[in-house]
Write a protein that binds this DNA or RNA. Structure first.
Lengths: 222, 222
DNA sequence: ATATTCCAGATTGTTCAACAATATAAATTT
DNA sequence: AAATTTATATTGTTGAACAATCTGGAATAT
């Protein structure tokens, strides 16, 4: 296994650079769910010491991307159906709160508008990877309506786990396409300050999304 | 500084035992906010190696109780007014969601009922420490109405940070006393499935609580 | 006296080698 | 085939070491 490149000449500590790198790999589905990550092997793979890697593992475990079992090692999380349902429960609570927290002229609204346009552009150029990224950013912006760093952090963790699930599904191509329009509609309801309608819309949105993810999971495994 | 006792003959890894121990100390206000925790000193204090302690620090940092500044060290978080306001924003969103998620006969409701009784008992015996603990448990039980492990975890983190704030305030004695009755009333509204009223009640509740914490903070510092 | 530069000491970041404790896999016995 | 033992590999933890960075004070210049 070739050595992983760790350039990115930022001066942040090595352990955090590696953590970011592995996090990206996890989200991109470059590991098998449930796969064991051996300290010796991974440390060699990234050219870092075992002690430093253990700090990395602690980081990623606290972000919910790895599972640590004492004396057994760390494993890539393998989110099952119940994990996905839980993730959508979190989204439901937090994003519902975001709608109710929305206030006219909030900077997050401008960002959401810009992101819907970026999504359109990405679709036009058939850049589905970008469509997915922009979609995530749209929802992150929506949560930032709450003006709560801690809530945003929590949401980011859950979203990362969901992206890991996406990474496990084959052909994620058009997975996010239908949501471009839904995002636009949702944004319009929020900007029109129709909170009740926006919440109903959100509920249907999340339900649809959850079901499509669950279906794809079951298609994959059986 | 005497060596800290680490008995508790559970077979969990040393680093997690120490993490739990320091976490407790942090919540009990045994450290000064903003205080720097030197690796060398703390490692000696707990009789563990520096490498192991660094894993502990990573753990506690990810729980929001310590702050890590690269090349500078780790510091005890010193929550300011804006942190407290943020914490209450999180509580508002999540606990509002919990009320809306409440369903008749949910096991969490029984637990909440039991906890209000325990609170009464603790008050009768003037055990204010216990009143505080039971109060926290009541709100944790309330969040478990969502049936979402991830949401509960997020709430636990925020609550731990809030307890750390309490630990910094002097004479926390009767701090929680007025909430015993409020909890009971809130529970009644939830069990009566009067969601809208319960939410209004919760809003007033959290506002009152937030204001009393902020007032105590400003009284302390000026 | 005030500000800036420079240096020495302390602290963090990281590695390595070692060993104890635990888990895993294989070989052996029942 | 099941249970037990043995051997091997992995994790948990330590201590020492060194480079990189920070801190505080001394020396210098303004």
């Amino acid at each position: 296994m070739a050595l992983v490149n760790l350039d990115e000449q930022t001066d942040q500590p090595l352990s955090e650079k590696v953590a970011l790198r592995i996090r990206e790999m996890l989200i991109q589905g470059r590991f098998t769910p449930g796969e064991k990550l051996s300290e010796h092997q991974v440390a060699g793979q990234f050219g870092i010491s075992r002690n430093t890697l253990r700090e990395v593992f602690r980081l990623l475990t606290s972000q919910g991307l790895l599972t640590h079992i004492p004396n057994r090692g760390v494993f890539v999380v393998s989110p099952d159906e119940s994990a996905v349902m839980d993730i959508y429960r979190v989204r439901w609570v937090i994003q519902k709160g975001a709608i109710q927290a929305a206030s006219r002229g909030h900077p997050a609204l401008a960002r959401m508008t810009a992101l819907t346009q970026q999504a359109d552009a990405a679709r036009s150029s058939n850049d589905w990877q970008q469509v997915g990224t922009v979609n995530m950013e749209f929802h992150r912006a929506m949560v930032s309506l709450c003006d709560s760093p801690r809530l945003s952090l929590c949401f980011d963790l859950v979203l990362a786990e969901l992206r890991l699930v996406f990474g496990l599904l084959e052909y994620t191509g058009h997975l996010h396409e239908p949501y471009i329009e839904l995002n636009t509609s949702l944004l319009q309801l929020i900007e029109a300050e129709k909170a009740a309608e926006a919440i109903d819309f959100l509920e249907a949105y999340l339900l649809k999304s959850e079901r499509s993810v669950l279906a794809a999971m079951q298609r994959k495994k059986g």
